[in-house]
Amino acid sequence: MNGLLAAPRAWIETFGEIAGFCGQVLGQVFGGRVFRFFGEALRQAGILILSSTLVICGLVFIIGLQCGIEGAYFTRGTGTPTYAGVFAAWCDLRELVPYAFGYMMAAKVGTGIVAELGSMRISDEIDALEVMGINSMTFLCATRLLASWMVLPFVYIASVRSGFFASYLAVVVQIHEVSAGGYSLIFWMFQNPPDLLFSAIKAMAMATVIVLVGCYYGYNARGGPVGVGTATAKSMVLNIVAVHLIGMLGTQIFWGANPRAPIGG
């Protein structure tokens, strides 16, 4: 019996540790300590913009094309090709853009943070920071979180645009069963600004969790280069699970009770 309980107990312990760690980092951001290292936060923000915007927008573009194609053929099948915009609008904004964003964040930014902080940990760089009288958790983790909050909403909006554009290309230019005006009318009828806000909230929740999990696994890496590798893998697993949980919860909360669709009553 004890043996059976060992694994879940270890998970709960890890979860508790991660929660404690996140609490500390969030405290340093909201408590304003992080602004002592605002320069470092800006530097991290710059790195995020330069290294991640394109690849995130690219992935979302591909997803947008897919949503457009699926939507166009599905609505043609049901005899309502003018409604291709409904499928595209929901598919893009509500579900797949946040997921694609989450995946790319986990794969690029999350693992990047684990690898970077982990290698700093094992080569005593974090100790060196501490010894210089610098709070390493603030300097390394809180600044990254702040940077991601400063930058990622804009990156996200940019990626949503690229997704919309891709769907438009697929439905109107490639398959061409609706006119540009007809598509746009339906497309915009089936979403409104609060939807964009909800979608962004979903994405930012994902980003926050991913950055924090990445910081936790990197900052606490042990056991040399192998340990950093293991930590990277673990963080990726946890992040992918978290992305789906947040996606599901977000859809339930924001659209589960009220689909906000202008159909019928």
């Binding site: 970077e116 290698s119 700093m120 080569s123 005593d124 760089e125 100790d127 060196a128 501490e130 010894v131 210089m132 009288g133 610098i134 709070n135």
Partner: peptide, 20 residues
């Protein structure tokens, strides 16, 4: 502790230079 550490200069065994 952070204030106290400013009195110190430390060279770690492996140098611990910031790789970035």
């Amino acid at each position: 502790l952070f204030d106290m550490r400013r009195k110190f200069g430390v060279l770690f065994q492996d140098g611990a230079l910031f790789g970035s």
